[in-house]
């Protein structure tokens, strides 16, 4: 199970099992989204499968998640998603009304993101072999000229910006799935980030890295970037926007918000000279209203992410382990 958790075990699986088997010339690293040149055009191409439980949760459902997830993966390459495919795997006996609501949500999410679902497939598996409904989406989009967004491009001096409050999706899902009451309802932040990314690229095409901190949260995203570029990342703990309801839920459960999944946030590594303008552009966009500078990229401690604590220490922020194993207790 840990192998799907977006942490060290997922990385291991890709590096040791899938990577070697798929060895290809164009794509040495199996990133979430691939940048390809085809007939003179630079395309971003991405696919993602969705196995979320429950299918419906505050702030969304598996349908909008499937659209936004792939749209966002493309957006992290700088591409505005153009076309999506959708494959559904239905469990025998799943109610048609459920499938209908999911389909409606997908349509609405696609329209909102300005993307067309153009091809698809449906399979049915025996009862007991699926949690009602699985979705897979793939998408393509054009990468604008001059845009080259890759984790490897993070450079010391880059300013690290997060587009808004973290931890909402993971806590929302967990509270409905496990029947937890936190006093206030916590909604997923599920959203398509194509428009926000366009607004950022309008300031300068020279952003270095964009990443959507989904599974494994901000901690996983920052660690992957630090490892890929062999740079250090230093963040200031108290500047990371954590909504109070997430902080409270995490404190009660013993979770760290830095490791909780997001579905409508991005983290950007921006050259220092553009940071202020990019931040302003983000804040002008509804999905970036709470954007904040959370730290910087440094030459020291390559491959490591550290957080400056309120007490003045520098806590090491690890890549999450696949399971919730306390490192120390």
């Amino acid at each position: 199970m840990g192998h799907g958790g977006g942490g060290a075990m997922s990385a291991e699986l890709v590096a040791n099992v899938f990577g070697p088997a798929f060895a290809s010339a164009t794509q040495a690293a199996l990133a979430d989204s691939a940048a390809l040149t085809l007939g003179g055009a630079r395309l971003a191409f991405s696919t993602d499968s969705f196995v979320v439980r429950p299918l419906f949760f505050p702030g969304g459902c598996i349908g909008d998640l499937a659209v936004n997830g792939t749209v966002n993966d493309l957006a992290m390459s700088g591409a505005r998603a153009a076309y999506l495919s959708c494959a559904a795997i239905l469990e025998e006996g799943v109610e048609m009304s459920v499938v209908g609501r999911v389909a409606q949500a997908m349509g609405a999410a696609a329209r909102a993101a300005g993307v067309e679902v153009v091809t698809g497939d449906t399979k049915v598996v025996e009862s007991g072999h699926g949690d009602g409904l699985y979705l897979n989406t793939a998408g393509i989009g054009l990468i604008p000229a001059g845009v080259d967004l890759r984790p490897q491009r993070a450079r010391p001096g880059d300013v690290v910006i997060v587009s808004g409050e973290i931890g909402l999706h993971g806590v929302a899902i967990m509270s409905v799935r496990e029947g937890l009451e936190f006093g206030v309802e916590i909604s997923s932040d599920c959203a398509a980030l194509g428009g926000l990314v366009e607004a950022m690229l309008a300031v300068t095409p020279d952003l270095h890295v964009l990443r959507d901190p989904t599974r494994g949260g901000l901690a996983a995203a920052l660690n992957e970037i630090a490892a890929a570029a062999q740079v250090g990342v230093t963040i200031v703990e108290r500047s990371v926007p954590v909504p109070p309801q997430v902080a409270n839920a995490c404190a009660i459960l013993g979770l760290d918000p830095m490791y909780v999944a997001n579905e409508g946030k991005l983290v950007a590594f921006v050259p220092r000279e553009h940071a202020e303008a990019v931040l302003a552009a983000m804040r002008a966009h509804p999905l970036g209203a709470q954007a904040a500078v959370i730290g910087e990229c440094v030459a020291e401690h390559p491959g490591m992410v550290v957080a400056r604590t309120a007490l003045g220490g520098t806590r090491v922020v690890d890549l999450p382990l696949g399971e919730q194993l306390p490192r120390i207790c």
Binding site: E178, L180, I252, L253, L325, P326
Partner: peptide, 22 residues
């Protein structure tokens, strides 16, 4: 109180719990 309600649920479901013999 709010922590206790959640904790009970957490213990029941084994949510973010690791078995320990400590």
């Amino acid at each position: 109180e709010d922590e206790r309600v959640v904790l009970e649920r957490q213990l029941e479901r084994g949510l973010n719990c690791v078995p320990t013999s400590s």
